[in-house]
Amino acid sequence: MTKSAAVRHAELGTASVAEFLQFLFSGITVGAIYALVGVGFAIIYSASNVINFAQGEFVMLGGMATMFLLSGGEPLWLAALLAIVITAAIGLALNKFAVEPAAHRRGGGASVVTLIIITIGASIFIRGAAEVLLGKDSHRLPAFSGDQPIDIFGAKLDPQVLWVLGALALAVVGLRWFFARTRLGKAMLATSCNRLAAELVGIDVRMILLASFGLSAALGALAGILTAPITLTRYDIGIMLGLKGFCAAILGGLGSPFGAVAGGLLLGIAEAMAAGYLSSAYKDVVAFVIILAVLFLAPGGLFGAKATERV
């Protein structure tokens, strides 16, 4: 195919630093997207032990709703804000009308697998609704601060990535504050550690579940809005983003938003490096091999709690 990496490097000695940086930026671009989606998985998992397969749809809704409102003449900031509110409301509704009735049925709640299938059903439903209401075309939101890339040592960085990274940092700091300082956050942590005990000390577990869906839907929508200028948005983009976000959350260790961030960035960079230095045709294989290797060595993910099994 092409010349081997070694030969190329000899020829383009100085270019190789820029090349490496460019691969790194590409990895960070993609990784930041995975990370932001992954955080949503982690939040709901923390509160309910449920993997919400509709998380990718929240991301899609954020981008698509913003696009729809923009085309209706709203300014970008208002469209984005409304999209986040709408998506959060859909997240709350998903919990209220689909997850909660199953999880709190009289005579024993549904198993985790049943709840997963409900979220799969919800993702098909939301995607179907978006297909009918918002159409099947792909759309691109305008970049927040222009398309002119930033030049760093000869490598180019999409300024939109800075928005994504900024949101990621804010989300991490915000969540850390939320879990450590607020009553709701502490109650959420307590529920994830031991649900029964949490109920016994008077925590309203239903409320916690509801809040976790609202919060992760809002975060998902934000992710969808910020990344739409990079990835474009379409009614079915949630499948792919959901899958990669799930990988990020697992890689980092479920239930840890910070782990999801690390997992997402790691995954994105691994993909870019594999595409750059090994083979772009097999880059996804490399990414999944890394995930498998990590899981085999650290079965709880990179930053997962070493959970002890209840007997």
Partner: peptide, 12 residues
């Protein structure tokens, strides 16, 4: 798709 999703959720 809307109907399929609703059926899945409903049954579960």
């Amino acid at each position: 798709h809307l109907v399929l999703g609703a059926i899945l959720i409903g049954v579960m």
